[in-house]
Nucleic acid binder design. Structure first.
Length: 340
DNA sequence: AATTCGTGGTG
DNA sequence: TCACCAAGAAT
């Protein structure tokens, strides 16, 4: 008779779970990174950090977190800020829908919850931008609710420890719930993610220093599970038009419409007409830029467009505008915008 | 249910 | 150089 890969056959014996919990939590206590959002118990700030960390590395999110929580120190402060201001603070971090939903959720919290962040996973789940993962993360970390999280780290760690990925997404959540340390749910969740982010790496896991090795089936013998996703390719040409007015320099920029599906309301360079693009022999700048599933070949040419859409913006005002990441990259490369 | 959203580090 | 991928959510 063939053995089936059911949960009972492939998981960790319940008898061995307490020791696993102790080992992983001890490792986390001793080796967990000191991160700014781990130094606070403010639910609002933990919420901000969790949204910033959605599909975003710790290294990228850290400085944004510091700036954002300094600028908007409370839910109320965020709620009364303008969307442009919020987007400007988010500029460069990507996935701008997160910023809009966080802003909208902050307003909701002020109006519907008297400015107090909802304290349960179930209530958090109703706020825009808070899905299954984020609701459980905030509830466990900020409020100590005994609820487990599953992110891509937990999926990888869990698959390797079990020896194989489960048959469905839901089994990840079921297993995470079984493994959860219900005395320290927030720390346990962060420990699992920390393990995936620093030890149980996608490419080559550092099994030699892994605190969970005793409980791991694969121990580095990972079955390849890669998929090649086809990417789209596009070429785009932007125009750099500048003029001097009263001794101050201004650039021609365009703001995306509020109804745009992508990056609404954010600023970028005007695109060149095809005739202009063809006529320009030597671009000022040429670079590659990828936006999720599309690879762009970007050219920037000099121009002096006097009519058409766009606004002349003084270079002094540039720092406060919510630029798209591509626009920021271009302006930085051209030396127009100093790094920030 | 499969796609799409941004960006930067990494090997 | 370039494909992979990261504390996911919404549609």
């Amino acid at each position: 008779m063939k053995r089936k890969n059911c949960m009972l056959g492939i998981g960790i014996s319940p008898r061995r779970l307490p020791a696993l919990r102790r080992a992983l939590l001890a490792w986390y206590d001793a080796h967990g990174r000191v991160l700014p959002w781990r130094q606070t118990s403010d639910p609002y700030k933990i919420w901000v950090s969790e949204v910033m960390l959605q599909q975003t590395r710790v290294a990228a999110a850290t400085e944004y977190y510091q700036r954002f929580t300094a600028r908007f120190a409370t839910v109320r402060a965020l709620a009364r800020a303008s969307e442009a201001d919020v987007l400007a603070q988010w500029s460069g971090l990507g996935y701008y829908r997160r910023a809009r939903m966080l802003h909208a959720a902050a307003k909701l919290v002020v109006e519907e919850y008297s400015g107090e962040v909802p304290t349960s996973e179930a209530a958090l789940r109703h706020l825009p931008g808070i899905g299954r993962y984020t609701a459980a993360a905030i509830a466990s970390i900020a409020f100590g609710e005994a609820t487990a999280v599953v992110d891509s780290n937990v999926e990888r760690v869990s698959s390797r420890m079990r020896g194989a990925p489960p048959n469905s997404k839901d089994e990840y959540w079921q297993q995470a719930s079984e493994w959860l340390d219900r005395k320290r749910p927030g720390d346990w969740n962060q420990a699992m993610m920390e393990l995936g982010a620093t030890i149980c790496l996608p490419g080559k896991p550092k099994c030699g220093v892994c605190p969970a090795r005793r409980w791991c089936v694969t121990q580095g013998q990972l079955s390849a599970e890669k998929r090649a996703d086809s990417r789209h390719k596009h070429t785009v040409t932007y125009l750099l038009a500048s003029k001097n007015t009263k001794g101050s320099k201004a650039l021609l920029l365009v703001q995306r419409g509020e109804e745009e599906r992508l990056m609404a309301g954010m600023w970028e360079l005007p695109t060149a007409e095809s005739a202009e693009a063809d006529a320009a022999s030597v671009p000022l700048l040429q670079l590659k830029h990828s936006i999720t599933v599309t690879d762009y070949e970007v050219r920037v040419i000099a121009g002096t467009r006097s009519r058409g859409q766009g606004s002349w913006v003084s270079v002094r005002e540039l720092q406060s505008l919510p630029f798209t990441g591509l626009a920021r990259k271009i302006l930085r490369r051209l030396g127009v915008l100093t790094a920030y």
